[in-house]
Amino acid sequence: MARIIGALTSSHIPSIGNAISNGKQGDAYWKPFFDGYKPVLRWLEQEQPDVAVVLYNDHGLNFFLNNLPTFAVGAAPEYITKDEGWGLPVFPPYKGYPEMSWHVIESLIEQDFDIAMCQEMAMDHAFINPMRLFWPDENPPKIKTIPVAINTVQFPLPKPSRCYALGKAIGNAVASWPTDEKVVVIGTGGMSHQLDGERAGFINKKFDEMCMEALLNDPESLTKFSSLELVREAGAQGAEIIMWLAARGALQGKVSRIHSSYHIPISNTAAGVLALANN
């Protein structure tokens, strides 16, 4: 039986990619941000997970508004990266795990999640940057991946409660996969930020800190928010915290904090990383 060893949640701000490519991790602006990942890297080094289920949101690379699934699960042998339009580098493909993907898909449908299924899927910064942060020495890393895209582009967004339930269902799916592989669940995006409108630049530290605590001890409390309430509290794109909530939903054991770090601002965003162990 495969086992979820923990959840890692991280911001995926585009400029992180360029900072890594240009070796700016030690610069005054970036150092506090990158230092926040070191304890998580030590944990990953020690645990050596085999599979990463990555909950992320596509920003108009793989999906356009003509065909936009609410939830989509990748079932490809590999996941390519492509030109997003503004200068982020394109990398060799990330490794997929189609056999396990189909198991997850079948299990999700059984659990009443009628997801879209994708045998080709291009990954954008929301997938790539957290992978580069968590596996800085290998690009692409050896770990097999199962991307799960959640719509945050077009309202209505899936309800936070539904995202949490999706995470739970993914947890069940992994638990019934008949190998002893170690699985880590990754949720990307956030924390509070708003790129558009007269309220651009909005950040809500208090709300982010509340979310970090709630994700550890009381995730159900976050399922009471509507998507619009998340927009109000966390900013238009801060609603991406639904990916963190989904990742947390996958943890069904005794949950403890490995590490968390929070830093304002990176680009227009309150950047956060949270690592939770599942025992």
């Binding site: 309202f155 708003q194 409108g197 007269e198 309220r199 909005f202 927009v231 109000r232």
Partner: peptide
């Protein structure tokens, strides 16, 4: 605007 300064990209 329900949330001031914010454009909700609805249908």
């Amino acid at each position: 605007q329900l949330i001031p300064g914010t454009y909700i990209f609805d249908g």
